[in-house]
Computed example of a mutant assay.
Amino acid sequence: MPLWWHLMKSVPSLQIVLHRIAWSAVIVGAFLFWRDGRGWLKRALSKPNTWWMLALSGVLIGFNWGLYIWAVNAGHVVESSLGYFINPLLNVLLGVVFLRERLGRVQWMSVAIATLGVAWLTFRFGQLPWIALALAASFALYGLIRKLAAVDSIDGLGVEGAYLFLPVVAMLVWSETHGQGGFFDGYGVAMSVMLVVSGALTALPLVGFAYAVRRVPLSIIGLLQYVAPTMQFLIGVFVFHEAFDRDRAVGFAFIWIALAIFAIDGALRARRANARAPLVPAASPR
């Protein structure tokens, strides 16, 4: 994704995120209508409080997408990757605060080490890594709301897109009519096609994730989620040649150590839980 957004850096970031939201809403809505007909929207909103929770989660994910695209094209890919490294640990803290979940000593230790990493980066560079923290916070809050809403992943994404679609289209129309857009005659055919494809690049991985998460153990899903920020970090350093000096390396090292401790502890907990689980006898042949 950083490589894709970088190819589109000639387009203003706001225009990119507006098109990303609009076209992903069209693609997800068309998929749900093809799969379930008109009943998907009623089903998604059938539970109490779902309507406003999905409206809020839609605003959060739109903010997250917009900040990420701006950060990539402003030369902050490395700091953006830091946000998604921090995100799993922030999810843990939100679980403690809002869901009354309990952490073991090792988990608290990993959170403390990551906090030291953020503090180090703040101390050495004189300001909070606000891009990383805003990306992590918005995505963690999005995940919390989606967990509380208890709606199917794709249905929820469709409702979020439906909420955002009309305001986003209105902004796009205003931009085109006031000389601030360029989808039809300013960006060129290739760039306009890329804006449409951005919606597919947003929607299809989320649809795939919704199906995969039901078929792959959560312990593996958790480890796989570190692959994306690692790739983003490598792209930022080795492709875009962003600064990564010793001070930044120390701060990142704290957070990577915290994630390693957290991941290993989670894997050991899952193994112990599986060992304690009763064996289910095989069904007798008939």
Rank of each mutant, 00 (worst) to 15 (best):
Y187I: 02
D155C: 09
V196C: 13
G188A: 07
Y84S: 06
W108K: 10
L93D: 04
W23A: 05
S10R: 15
F209I: 05
G186R: 01
P281H: 01
I21Q: 06
N87A: 13
W51F: 13
A253K: 02
V196W: 08
S57D: 11
G37H: 10
G251P: 04
M53N: 02
L206A: 11
A270R: 12
A203V: 05
L135Y: 03
L279M: 03
F139L: 13
I16T: 08
A200E: 08
Q107I: 00
M53F: 11
F165N: 03
D152K: 01
G236E: 06
W5N: 07
V59M: 14
I257F: 15
K147W: 06
I69S: 01
A267M: 15
A44I: 05
R276G: 00
L67V: 14
R38D: 12
V250A: 08
A212E: 02
L166E: 01
R105K: 12
V196P: 11
G29D: 11
L67K: 00
L195Q: 07
L133S: 06
R271I: 05
S24W: 03
L157T: 10
L133R: 01
A277C: 01
L60C: 08
P205A: 10
R105C: 09
F125V: 00
H178Q: 06
V106L: 15
I257G: 13
A119T: 07
F33G: 06
G266T: 02
M231R: 00
L45Q: 04
R286Y: 09
I257A: 15
V237Q: 08
A210M: 09
A114C: 09
G156E: 10
G126C: 12
S110P: 11
S153P: 08
S192N: 07
L45S: 07
L166S: 06
R105Y: 12
M8F: 12
V26T: 08
L204Y: 10
I27K: 01
V197I: 14
F244R: 02
S10T: 14
L121A: 08
Q107A: 14
